[in-house]
Each structure stands twice: as structure tokens, then as C-alpha cells.
Amino acid sequence: MAETAPATRILELTNRPDSRRVWLAHLRQHMDVLAILARKDFQVRYKRASLGVTWAVAVPLLQASIMAVVFSRVVRAGVGPGYGIYIMSGIIPFSYFSSVLGSGVTSIVDGAAFTDKVWFPRILLAIVPVISNLVGLLVTLVVLVAAMPLLGVNYGLRLLLLVPATLLLVAFAGSLTLVLSALNVYFRDVKFLVMASLMVWMYVTPIIYPITFLKRIEFVAVANPLTGVVTVFHMATVGSRGPWVAPLLVTLSVTAVLLVIGAEAHRRYDRLFVDLL
């Protein structure tokens, strides 16, 4: 019998980054590791809490209800019937976005102890929260759809738009996380900048009120890539209210640019990160 020599893995290590082909092969090889890490990240987050994953749903819903009450009754910023659903369909993607960024930005730094013994592409650590937070997002979306008739919004074919809306959200949140997680290795201030920006970000996104409400600074909301994401969610639930082409184009182009920058940054600097952790 002819010896079928097992393909010996040959590893060449120099100071040059891996070629794109080698890098992609590494990523493919580590998909099962990514799956385990993501599942674990999800479990760990809710394991110690008696209500478990219910919290992933309860927190954004509670947030949405409070805002709905405050802004429609107290501030009277309501946008007519279906305001509750309007707020919910903004809050839900936003809370996914902020929790992905929250753990994603520091993921490379936090994972230092885990990654400095055996090498694997550290970009996976940044992707983990993007996946692990999906469960909470999907469950809350189901709750949102179930609540629609109760809050005076009828079902329609437009609900199918939730699929591209979700994909767009994941793509944008993921791409931004890739860039910021790499940047945070070099500049630890990034983490705090992100936390601060998230507070402002919510108010320049059509979550509580439509962007027309911002009047003179409406352009900020149009330039905000999250506006496009939330707009598609609105189109899916309460229907289109106002411009959507421009925000969507902004989101798509910003996402594409961030994705390229983020992926390249990780490919090039992955093995240098360890010296800075």
C-alpha cells in the first residue's frame, strides 16, 4: 500500500502579514472555534441570572416602553398611531448595536490571556459578540411582531423587510466593531469614546422621533449610518415615513468601507497585537 503521507502543515513566520489567501484559510479553519466561543459568550452572559435570556428581551422592551410613555405623554413628541411600535423598532436594533460595540470594542484586549498561548485569528474575538447577541435580537423581534396588533399596527407584506433590515444591522455593527476593536489595542481611549458616543448617537438616530424633528441639524441624522438601518426597520413595521434612499446609501457605503478597513487591519496587525496587550 502506498503511503499516503499526511499533508504536513508548513508554517512560515516572518514579519510580513499573511497573504489574503492564507488569512482566509485560517479563518475557515477556525469557524468551529468561533461557533463555540459565540455560544459560550451567550451562555456566560445570562448563566448566572435566574431569568436567563429573558433579560436580553426584557431590557430593550422596558426601555422602549418607558420612552414611549415619557415622550408621548410628557414631551408630546408622539408621531401618531403606532408610536409604541415605532419606538420599539428603533430601540431594538439600537440596543443590539450598543451591546455588540460594548463588548466588541474591548474584545481583543480582554481576550489577551486567552490568545497569548495558542495562536488563532484574533478577529474572531471581535466577531463573537456580533453572533452571540443575535439570539437576543431575534427573540425581541419576535416579541415586537407579536405586539404589533396590540399597539394598533396591522401586519403586512412589508414585515419581510425585517430580514434585510437585520442583515444590514449585523453588517454595520460588525464592520464598525472590527475597526474599533483593532484601534482599541493601540489607543485604549477608544473604549471610552465609544461609550460616550453611544449616548449621543441615540438622539441623532430616528428612534424616539423622526429625523425631521431635528430641523436644522437634520443633516447629522442623514449622515449617521445608523439612520439607514433604523429606517429599514421602520419601513418593515410601521411603514415608510419620510426619506429612506439617502440614509440607506450612506449606511451601505459606510459599512463597505468599514468592513474593508476592519478586515485588512486585523489581517495586517493581528500578530502585532500581542506585543501591545
Binding site: 504536513t8 502543515r9 508548513i10 508554517l11 512560515e12 513566520l13 516572518t14 514579519n15 490568545t115 497569548d116 498561548k117 495558542v118 495562536w119 500578530r271 502585532l272 500581542v274 506585543d275
Partner: peptide, 13 residues
């Protein structure tokens, strides 16, 4: 493979 050489080359089979 955790950290990269700054110069030279390592080859591992």
C-alpha cells in the same frame, strides 16, 4: 506563532 519575528524567518513543518 503567537508573536511574529521582527526580522528573519521561522519555518515549522
Amino acid at each position: 506563532g503567537v508573536s511574529r519575528p521582527s526580522e528573519g524567518r521561522i519555518r515549522i513543518a
